[in-house]
Amino acid sequence: MNGGVRVAELSAEALDEVPWDRLESIDPTVPPEEVRRVLRRLFRKGPESTEDDCRPLFNALGTSERGISSVATAALPFVVALAANPRTGARASLVELLASLSQAQETTPPESIVPGWPEAWRHAHHAVQSLLTDPDPAVAGRPSRWRTAPAGSWSGVGPSGTSPSAILQDEQIRALLDEALAVRS
């Protein structure tokens, strides 16, 4: 793992290590700092979190019309960790968000996707795919769009615990996430 943090081990405390002010949202009404606040609220509320708590993430991270933002690359491990946690009340909404991001990456022109996103998605893919067989039918039944993705979409899938430096190709984003997700001794 060489300095990486497993997706399932991410927590609200790790959110503070991400330099959100250096990232960009695709929705100017939802700045990156708001994405951090939304994610923190989801961690804090746990079983009490709802679909409404997730709503700002849908427009800030990525859409088929606007592309996928740098804040999405930073938020992805946290979204996956929350969606994979059975104690998160808004799991089904977070899985729908992941499905929406999957759809956006398949339908958005490549120039509208931040350079580090495809690699980050490939490395999160194993954890995301495990949601398809989740024991909770509300979670497993949500991502129907993943089942119809083109065959080449999932090539090169790496383990969900890969270090941030292996996740991203974009040097600026890679540096940001290396700082944010480095294992604390």
Rank of each mutant, 00 (worst) to 15 (best):
T29R: 07
W20S: 02
P56R: 14
T148C: 06
T133V: 09
R22Y: 11
D21C: 06
L181M: 05
L132P: 02
R87Q: 14
E119C: 04
E171K: 13
W154C: 09
L176C: 11
I26V: 15
G62F: 13
I173N: 02
W117A: 05
S153W: 10
P115A: 05
R145M: 12
V35F: 00
V128I: 14
W154F: 15
V139N: 00
W117I: 15
G158T: 13
V128E: 00
R6Y: 14
L23G: 13
S160A: 13
Q172W: 06
G116P: 03
A138Q: 12
A92Y: 03
A84C: 10
T107H: 05
P28S: 08
P32Q: 05
S165H: 14
V114G: 08
P137T: 08
T50K: 03
N59E: 10
G46L: 03
T29E: 13
R145K: 14
G116H: 02
K45V: 05
R184P: 00
P137A: 11
A140N: 15
R174G: 08
R36I: 02
G4F: 01
T107P: 00
A149Q: 13
D53E: 13
F58H: 12
P150W: 05
I113W: 11
P150Q: 07
P164L: 05
R41M: 08
L57V: 05
T63N: 08
A166M: 05
S69A: 15
E9G: 03
A124H: 06
S25L: 07
L97S: 04
A151Y: 12
Q105T: 03
T63Q: 02
G89P: 01
A8G: 12
G156W: 05
A138I: 06
T63R: 07
A72H: 09
V157P: 06
L57S: 11
P143V: 04
T29D: 12
I173K: 02
R55T: 14
H125N: 06
Q105M: 10
R91A: 10
I68H: 02
E51F: 10
T73F: 03
A124G: 08
A166Y: 03
P28C: 03
G46W: 04
R122L: 13
V18D: 00
V18T: 14
H123G: 08
R87S: 14
L76M: 01
T148V: 15
P32C: 07
Q172P: 09
A92F: 08
R145Q: 11
V139S: 09
S144V: 11
I173P: 04
T73V: 04
R184F: 11
L168T: 12
A90H: 00
T73W: 02
N59D: 06
A149K: 09
E65C: 00
P32E: 01
V95A: 06
V80M: 00
G156L: 01
S102E: 15
D53M: 05
N85K: 08
E33M: 07
P56N: 07
A90G: 07
A60C: 00
G4M: 02
E119Y: 05
L132V: 01
A72F: 13
